[in-house]
Amino acid sequence: MMFQTLEARFVVGGFARGLELAGRIGQVAEEIGHPPELDLRSTTVHVRVISRDVFGVTRRDLELARGISAAAEALGLRADPTGIEVVELALDTPDHAEVKPFWRAVLGYQDHPLHDREVRDLAGTGPALWFQHTDPHDVPRQRFHLDVRVPPELVRPRIEAALAAGGRLVSEEHAPAFVVLADPQGNQACLTTGLGRD
Rank of each mutant, 00 (worst) to 15 (best):
R60I: 13
R9W: 03
Q27F: 00
E30W: 01
G196M: 06
T134M: 07
V119S: 01
G186M: 03
D80S: 13
V49T: 02
V87L: 15
W130Q: 02
F131Y: 12
P176F: 08
G76L: 09
V54K: 03
F178Q: 00
D95W: 08
P140D: 02
D147Y: 00
A161S: 11
L77E: 03
A123K: 07
I32M: 08
R9T: 15
A70S: 11
F3R: 11
T134W: 00
N187E: 01
E118K: 06
A105Q: 05
S42C: 09
F10Q: 12
A8I: 01
G194A: 15
L6Q: 12
V170R: 07
A70L: 12
A189H: 04
G13Y: 10
Q142R: 10
V150R: 10
L169T: 01
L19T: 13
M2W: 13
F144Q: 11
P113V: 09
T93H: 03
E98W: 06
F55I: 02
P176L: 08
S42V: 12
I25K: 04
P113R: 08
V155P: 14
D53V: 05
V179R: 01
C190A: 05
G126W: 12
S42K: 10
L146D: 02
V170F: 05
P176I: 07
A182V: 03
G14T: 07
D147G: 00
L122I: 15
G166L: 10
F144S: 12
E88I: 09
I159L: 08
A97L: 14
P127G: 05
M1L: 08
G167V: 03
F178D: 00
H145V: 04
L6E: 07
L146H: 01
A16S: 13
W103L: 13
P151N: 00
Q110N: 12
Q142G: 11
D53C: 01
R143A: 12
A97S: 11
E73Q: 12
R149K: 11
H137G: 10
G33I: 12
V45T: 11
E7G: 08
D121P: 03
R104T: 14
I25G: 06
L181Y: 02
R9M: 12
L38R: 05
G67Q: 00
T5P: 00
D53M: 03
L75K: 09
L107W: 02
P113S: 10
A128S: 15
G56Y: 10
G56S: 09
A97E: 15
G196F: 02
M1N: 05
C190K: 09
I159C: 11
E20F: 03
F55V: 05
I68V: 15
E7W: 00
P113K: 08
L21E: 04
V148H: 10
E172D: 14
F178N: 01
R59D: 15
G108Q: 03
G83H: 13
A74I: 04
D61V: 04
L191A: 07
L6C: 02
E7R: 15
T93C: 04
W130R: 10
I68P: 02
R117D: 13
E88W: 07
W103N: 13
V155E: 09
Y109H: 03
S51Q: 09
V139A: 13
R66P: 00
P140V: 11
